[in-house]
Write a protein that binds this DNA or RNA. Structure first.
Length: 556
RNA sequence: CGGGGCGUAGCGCAGCCCGGUUAGCGCACCUGCCUUGGGAGCAGGGGGUCGGAGGUUCAAAUCCUCUCGCCCCGACCA
């Protein structure tokens, strides 16, 4: 491809509204343009990258026996009503009516439609297993689109769905995907982790996410370097650092105007881990008192799994229900239900005295109060690994893929049943597996860039090599460039030749910005000795070779 | 949906507080000369509903009200 014939609108300056590195560079290097919040146009370079990623996805999906299909983006409401998601999902779903007044929606995912298809077509265990996939646009009315193409309202997604006769079959399909995903992300040149994830509203029991570490990511994962434990912070467990307790006697201490753990801790000169933080929550109109250690935070998602949805109590509610101001509540002599973090089961603590301006010192859990014990704290860096106790690390990541065991959550309501060998009707056991190609691209940039621009991993770069004839007015330069261009094309190497009549500096800057991993520089200086230069975008190292050797050197 | 910020030429910005020539700068763009190994130089030129609507005023990019859009933080994220 010739640069002069390709639409590559590079920008000299950073776009003002781009924060994330990948966003900034994709706009600046001419890969994407923004149409509106969360809506992006992929320009020729960007589209090439996506297609390269998609080609890898197809190869690896096909390799595990998955079959590509094409699904409508517009869905009738009925299917979504049957699984109940029409009602569960709120503003996130784009809804509309057709001319006949029928309720429709834009597909945010395709469990319903895939299962609908299976329910109509799959009759017998002989037809199973099946894996169907699509690489198509999904639409979600995101509450907050952000970080360029990382979180958009319309996005490409590789979704696959497995259909099996039983759990064992599902296990197999799940493992096939797991392995395929490893191959995919490795081929894409990403650094990533596989972590345990929250199955959430997708239902089902087991789920994993594939996470690419990057500052622009929205997720945090807990990692143990010693045993390999890896989990999304949304569900990660941890053992807070142990505490050497004092043998305090039970007594009330005067703590005037000291309400937060920090304030009381400072006032009494006792570290926060000797405190019990008491938080009053309102769950479906019933108050619940949540207790975590003073140096820990309440994990709302974990709590929600125990008591259902809740909200923090208002100041007045605290007074009404507990009879004391929020800053002085504690676990003793409570009538409300208490859920306490397991990490405070042992020890001697300070907490609110349930009377104004007083805290109680010497509280022994199990002796002075009772509670339901659960893991309700947020795992943080330095906490002990739940498996091996080594200290955990927290890393910020971009979720690039996920795999879920759905079970029969969708097959039952949509009546996707098959007949087993004994003639019994059974629900198909399903799994669903997603990968976001644009997120792979963004993660690759986040992980591979320098002050000059993008440094693409080989497999997903828009081109394999950029040819840079420095002076298009020099006959010899053009002649040699054209010759190398022809040879590269003939040998199946994707090449972009910067044939613009621009100064050398412009071409170098653009080449570095665009980030094609190899550059071949043809300049008069080296041409005098009959040589051209092959440069590595990442290391900036250059080697001189004869023009006719370029193809072979690039192939090796 | 809560909090914050920003809308002035294609891009990046100044001007706005404290109203008053013809709305300015850099880059990009067009023409010519010149130049060709890291975003050159000189000369000339084109390009603006100052996000939109209403109001205050003799006079509004500037003050007031409303509204739309975008970004960031949080909530949310099937």
């Amino acid at each position: 491809m010739r640069f002069s014939k390709m639409f590559i609108p590079t920008l000299r300056e950073d776009p003002s509204d781009a924060e994330a590195v990948s966003h900034r560079l994709m706009v600046r290097a001419g890969y994407v343009r923004q149409l509106a919040a969360g809506l992006y146009i992929f320009l020729p370079l960007g589209w090439r990258v996506l297609n390269r990623i998609n080609a890898i996805l197809r190869e690896e999906m096909d390799a595990i026996g998955a079959q590509e299909v094409s699904m409508p983006a517009l869905h009738p409401a009925e299917v979504w009503q049957q699984t109940g998601r029409w009602y569960e999902i709120k503003e996130e779903m784009f809804r509309l009516k057709d001319r006949g007044g029928r309720d429709m929606c834009l597909g945010m995912t395709h469990e319903e439609i895939m299962t609908w298809l299976a329910s109509r077509e799959i009759r017998s265990y002989r037809e199973l297993p099946q894996i169907w996939y699509q690489i198509q646009t999904k639409l979600r009315d995101e509450a907050r689109p952000k970080s360029g193409i990382l979180r958009t309202r319309e996005f490409l997604m590789k979704d696959s769905y497995s259909f099996d006769t039983d759990e064992k079959g599902l296990e197999k399909s799940y493992n096939l995907h797991e392995e395929a995903y490893h191959r995919i992300f490795q081929r894409c040149g990403l650094k990533y982790y596989q972590v345990e994830s929250d199955p959430g509203m997708m239902g089902g029991a087991t789920a994993h996410e594939f996470m690419a570490p990057a500052a622009a990511g929205e997720d945090e994962i807990a990692l143990c370097d010693s045993c390999g434990y890896a989990a999304n912070v949304e569900l990660a467990q941890s053992v807070p650092p142990p505490v050497q307790f004092e043998d305090w006697n039970l007594e009330d201490v005067h703590t005037p105007e000291k309400r937060t753990v920090e304030e009381v801790s400072e006032f009494l000169n006792v570290s926060p881990q000797y405190f019990i933080k008491s938080l009053l929550l309102i769950a479906s109109d019933k108050p619940v008192l949540a207790l975590v250690r003073g140096d820990q935070e309440l994990h709302e998602k974990k709590m929600e799994r125990i008591i259902g949805s809740f909200r923090p109590a208002l100041k007045e509610e605290v007074k009404d229900i507990l009879g004391v101001e929020a800053g002085f509540i504690g676990p003793m002599n409570q009538k409300v239900r208490i859920i306490a973090d397991s990490s405070i089961k042992e020890g001697v603590y300070i907490s609110g005295a349930n009377k104004q301006d007083y805290h109680t010192k010497g509280i022994r859990p199990g002796v002075h109060f009772n509670a339901d014990w659960h893991d309700i704290h947020v795992a943080k860096a330095g906490d002990g690994c739940p498996k091996c106790s080594a200290p955990l690390r927290i890393e910020r990541c971009i979720e690039i893929g996920n795999i879920f065991k759905l079970g029969t959550k969708y097959s039952e309501p949509l009546k996707a049943f098959y007949l087993d060998a004994n003639g019994h009707e059974k629900p198909i056991v399903m799994g669903s597996y997603g990968i976001g190609p644009a997120r792979i691209a963004a993660a690759a940039i986040e992980q591979n860039n320098d002050k000059d621009g993008i440094i693409w991993p080989k497999a997903i770069a828009p081109f394999d090599v950029e040819l840079i004839p420095l002076n298009m007015k020099d006959g010899r330069t053009v002649e040699v460039a054209e010759d190398i261009y022809k040879r590269l094309n003939e040998s199946g190497i994707d090449v972009l030749m910067d044939d613009r009549d621009e100064r050398a500096g412009v071409k170098f800057k653009d080449a570095d910005l665009i980030g094609i991993p190899k550059q071949v520089v043809i300049g008069e200086r080296n041409l005098k000795e009959g040589m051209v230069e092959i440069r590595d975008r990442r290391t900036k190292e250059a080697i001189k070779v004869k023009p006719e050797e370029v193809v072979n050197r690039l192939k090796s």
